Structures are given as structure tokens and as C-alpha cells.
Computed example of a mutant assay.
Amino acid sequence: MEILIDDLSGQDVKTLIQEHLDDMHATSPAESAHALDLSELKKPNIVFWTVWEKDQLLGCGALKTHNAKEGEIKSMRTSHLARNKGIASKLLNHILTTAKQSGLERISLETGPQDFFAPARALYQKNGFSECGPFADYQPDPYSVFMTKTL
């Protein structure tokens, strides 16, 4: 398994991001779906990784830097074929290690309260994240769960 910085140009990656966006918009009202599209994921304050096993895309995730001390996890997604195989845990650990090495002190994220997001919330809680209030530009939202972790 390899975790690589990705430029989001491959069709497999574009398809996985579109699946992610489709699911986010299917489970949350439009104003509460905070998933980033391809153009937003290419901004300079975001590093985007993909996880591969040979030529099979297993998942993706990103780190958005808000300032010198705070970052945010974005676009965590595991492909349907790779679910429940520990891919998300390995990628999350990679992102957290990279964030810490970059000098970030706090990592936060936004996810949903719906059952669809229960596995994600469990993964983050298992890795030391706890619920918090809105951060960065987020506002209170009944369709959002905010979580944070000090590095």
C-alpha cells in the first residue's frame, strides 16, 4: 500500500471525489454539505493524498491548513472495495503525522450527525478526536458535528 500526494488529475480520483460529493449532497441539505470539489481541493493551502494498492485506488484524504497552528481534515473517503480494511485509519495516521511534522498544533474536522457518518465519527473518536464547537468559518449547524484533536 502506498500513500501519495496526488494532483487530482486521474480519472479514478475524479470518480472517487464525485462519489464523495454525491453522498454528501444526498445525506445533507446543500447549505450543510461542506465537501470540497476538485477545484477547491487544488488550492495551495490543501495537500491531497490518495491510497493505492498497485493500480487500485483505495481512498483519499486532504489536509487544509487554516493558519500556522491549525488545520482541517477534508475529503476522507474509502472506495467501496476497500471499506473495513483499515485504509482510513492508515491514511488518517499519515495525515496526522504530516500535520504534526509541519508544526500544526490542532487538527479539526466537520462531519455529519446522521447514521451514514457514524463510522467516520467512530474512527475519529478512536484516534483521539473529541466534539467541539464550530471552527474556522463554520457556523453552528444541526447537520454538522465538529471534532478536534490537539497534536
Rank of each mutant, 00 (worst) to 15 (best):
S32M: 08
A122F: 08
F116N: 01
A26C: 04
R121A: 15
T27I: 01
M1W: 00
L81D: 14
T78S: 05
V145H: 06
S144M: 06
K42P: 01
Y138D: 08
S130H: 10
E53F: 07
V47G: 00
F135G: 01
W52A: 03
M147I: 08
K74N: 04
L58H: 07
G112W: 08
I5Q: 06
T111Y: 08
P140V: 02
L21Y: 10
T148R: 05
L151R: 12
K126Q: 10
A33N: 09
A120H: 14
W52Y: 12
L63N: 06
E2P: 03
E131G: 13
R121G: 13
P134R: 04
V13H: 13
N67Q: 11
E70D: 12
E31I: 12
S32F: 09
S79K: 04
T97Q: 12
E110R: 04
A118F: 09
I87V: 15
F129T: 03
K149H: 09
R83T: 07
L96E: 14
S9A: 05
S89Y: 01
T148V: 05
N45W: 08
L36Q: 14
F135M: 09
P44S: 01
H94W: 07
F116Q: 03
S75Q: 13
F117H: 10
E70S: 04
T65E: 07
A33L: 08
W49S: 00
A88T: 04
V13A: 14
E40S: 15
A35V: 13
N127H: 15
E110W: 03
T50W: 10
R121M: 12
S89N: 11
Q114R: 08
F146P: 04
L16K: 11
V13T: 15
L96V: 06
L58V: 04
G86A: 09
K42H: 03
Q11G: 04
M147T: 11
T65H: 00
M1R: 00
K126S: 09
K43M: 14
Q18R: 13
Y138E: 10
T15E: 15
A118H: 14
G10V: 06
L81N: 13
D137Y: 11
